[in-house]
Design a protein around this nucleic acid. Structure first.
Lengths: 139, 139
DNA sequence: ATCAGTTAGTAAGCCTAACTAACTATTTGC
DNA sequence: GCAAATAGTTAGTTAGGCTTACTAACTGAT
């Protein structure tokens, strides 16, 4: 097979697999009080550290007004706090609260539990190969 | 490493990779006149064949009212047709039109183009390993 | 020192897409 | 033949996207 055809075929499988995995994972989110946009933004804060709404909007590939609302909802729920930015009075720093960290870890664990179920039929060799292949992809 | 820990770790990577891949793919959807819910439902019809709104709702893991609206939007856009169901007058059969098939193929190609870009840095060996690993997962 | 232009964030308004509750039409089972 | 179950729709709410338009604050050039 020509290289370009092979890449196309792998892209296709990757697409299907990603849909399959995230569909399974999203089922877990329905039990969380946080919506998907809120969970995703909170995840950036918890695993990537505090940052401004604008940086969060960039990370989430949404527009600033959308992030304003997401952050507003997280703040009203007590999942994040806002601090004023020392270097630029226009900005604020958004940081996850204890409650936010706990909620995120719980939701994340529920997602991974469901994804693990997808791996139930995989052998040790399959797991190794899959793990290594993904590592190469994300590197 | 204990087997359960390894599975957890692979689940985690799979989760991250799926988010990464679909975020990239969704960027392509912004150029389509169809929204993501419409594209996804249309994809089921095109690749999986015609079916009732209820079956479509099951396939998409949404409630029947949601699918009613998605199908309504697709019908108004000319992407699907409705036929009466011969065996049950309560039901209708939703089928993709030529226009729907063409729109879906175009959107899908745009997605795969973007995913292929993620594979640009992968060697032939990486591609083979990734393709095989995903095949094993989806099997 | 001021004033023009840029940047960060928010507000308002609109759209899609998800939900639940309640309704209609049809089928099925006793 | 009628009660119960089923398929789908309608109505209303909520979350989360967008664009447009605005204020506040910063930057840089007179």
């Amino acid at each position: 097979m020509a290289p370009s055809n092979r890449r196309r075929k792998v892209a296709d499988r990757l697409h299907s697999a990603a849909i399959y995995v995230l569909r399974q994972a999203r089922a877990a989110d329905r039990k969380s009080p946080l919506g998907p946009a809120q969970l995703s933004a909170l995840s950036v804060l918890v695993y990537g550290g505090s940052r401004t709404p604008g940086e969060l909007a960039d990370a989430e590939q949404v527009t600033p007004p959308t992030m304003t609302r997401v952050v507003g909802a997280l703040r009203r729920g007590g999942y994040v706090r806002l601090r004023s930015c020392p270097s630029d009075a226009r900005s604020t720093i958004v940081e996850a609260s204890r409650k936010g960290i706990a909620a995120l870890q719980k939701a994340r664990a529920a997602r991974l539990d469901l994804i693990e179920e997808l791996l139930a039929g995989s052998s040790e060799a399959d797991l190794t190969r899959l793990g290594d292949a993904i590592e190469a992809l994300l590197a």
